[in-house]
Simulated scan of single mutants.
Amino acid sequence: MVMKHYPAEFKADAVALYRSRPGATIAQVADDLGINRETLRSWVRADDQRRGASGGPAASPAAGSVEDENAALRRRVRELEEERDILRKAARYFAGGDALVNRFQFVADHQARYGVKRLCQVIGVSRSSFYYWRSAADARAARQAADVALVGRIRAVHAEHDGTYGAPRITAELRDVGLPVNRKRVARVMRRFGVQGLRLRRRVRTTVPDPAAAKAVDLIGRDFTAGRPNQRYVGDITYLPVGDRGFLYLATVLDLHSRRLAGWAIADHMRTDLVIDALNAAQRTRGSLHGAIMHTDHGAQYTSRAFAEACTAAGVRQSMSAVGSSADNAAAESFNATFKRETLQGRRAFTDEREARLTAFRWLHRYNTVRRHSRLGQQSPITYEKSTRTAPATLAAAA
């Protein structure tokens, strides 16, 4: 999004996104986010200074001493070469399994050559955690043997019931034959060894209507167009699957003229604060939302008094679709489907919360600044808005 003043959270996320993509340049990340390249470069430089690693060689104790400076540079080159060698060797350990355990194992296998302290510094683990992991080796070996024995019993029960039983029923079967086992342990062993029961895919419900709440009339009537920016918006909530069972939730505010994502917010909850944060973000982007229409479904967040008060304060008129009709909010539903399809790319879930947030952060900004939209003549939303300001009649007819 194009802003004159960037909040500290945006700067931190932009720097984190750049650091999470080793192959990307500052120019590429800046273009993705729609910000000036030198602006991002200055944020990265400031972050380096805060970390105490500005990138330059350490100042020589004897000012002006070329020999000392050269010696410091040579030491730094040797350190970097050693770090590169360590990381190359470590890469083979991270192909699968528990990432932290893999790091500990790498340290254990190479500590004689590089030392525990140096290895922990390079691959980012705590020495105390490594020593604790090493001291528990015997207990882990015993647990591993017990898990191997248990998974044999689990697979026998699983096969006996045509692969339909999950952890609760398998636990009951094992207990009936005299094996005192905990259901959580059965579930853990099944996940570890890839044993799955037959189950229906759970549908995550993000629209929960409140029957007692006041409803706004439908001011859109399935007409998802607008003659100019900042006139009509649609809002919705979708979920981001994280790990095996976790979720984050994304609330969006989409301009119907340019399909620009004017505001959004991500949280680990679906409380009303989430949709209010998205509305406030849109207000910051546009400067003012006075007179605009905000069209949503009948979710409890949007029918709440707090959201109605936020709309009133922003000068926004509320509009709501029919209960249970996704077609009445089709523009928002379509955006959500595109977002999840292009970020997950066939996966069931993001690996962890950090990956989900950074992936969403990058995609949502690229959506506005880079991603071509078929409805906009294969232009990005921000490019379309700029072009309609220069030639409104021609482009409005083409849309």
Rank of each mutant, 00 (worst) to 15 (best):
I123M: 10
R341E: 12
L87T: 08
V316H: 05
A393N: 09
H365Q: 14
R19Y: 05
R341F: 04
M294W: 11
R76Q: 06
G246L: 07
E173S: 13
R199F: 06
R75P: 00
A314W: 09
A62Q: 05
A145V: 11
W43N: 01
Q283P: 01
H257L: 03
A282E: 00
A46R: 08
S325G: 12
C120I: 04
T225N: 09
M294P: 01
R202V: 07
A91W: 08
M3V: 05
A12M: 02
R191D: 12
V157T: 09
L261K: 03
A146R: 07
R222M: 02
E160M: 03
D48R: 14
Q49W: 06
R271P: 00
A91H: 13
L254E: 03
E173F: 02
A281K: 01
Q121R: 15
A46C: 02
E309L: 15
R183I: 10
E38M: 10
G52P: 02
I237W: 03
Q144T: 14
S60A: 12
F130S: 02
A398T: 08
S374L: 13
Y302V: 03
T171V: 08
S258M: 07
Q345M: 14
P381I: 14
D68H: 06
A137S: 14
L256D: 12
L40D: 04
F307D: 05
L174V: 03
K117W: 11
G246W: 04
V29Y: 06
P57N: 04
R305F: 11
L150D: 03
L40P: 00
E353G: 00
P229W: 07
A58V: 04
V181Y: 01
L179H: 10
N329E: 00
M320I: 05
A53P: 01
N70T: 08
N336K: 09
V157F: 03
A398I: 06
A396I: 00
V148D: 12
Y114L: 14
R389C: 09
D48P: 02
A330R: 15
D162P: 01
I220L: 15
G346R: 14
R183D: 08
A322D: 13
D68P: 00
E79C: 07
V2W: 10
D352N: 15
A360V: 04
E385G: 04
R202Q: 14
E309G: 08
W363Y: 14
L254V: 11
H298P: 10
H290W: 08
G227F: 08
A159P: 01
A156Q: 10
S135A: 14
E355P: 00
W264F: 04
V29F: 06
G64Y: 08
V370H: 09
Y165S: 07
D352S: 05
G166H: 10
E353L: 01
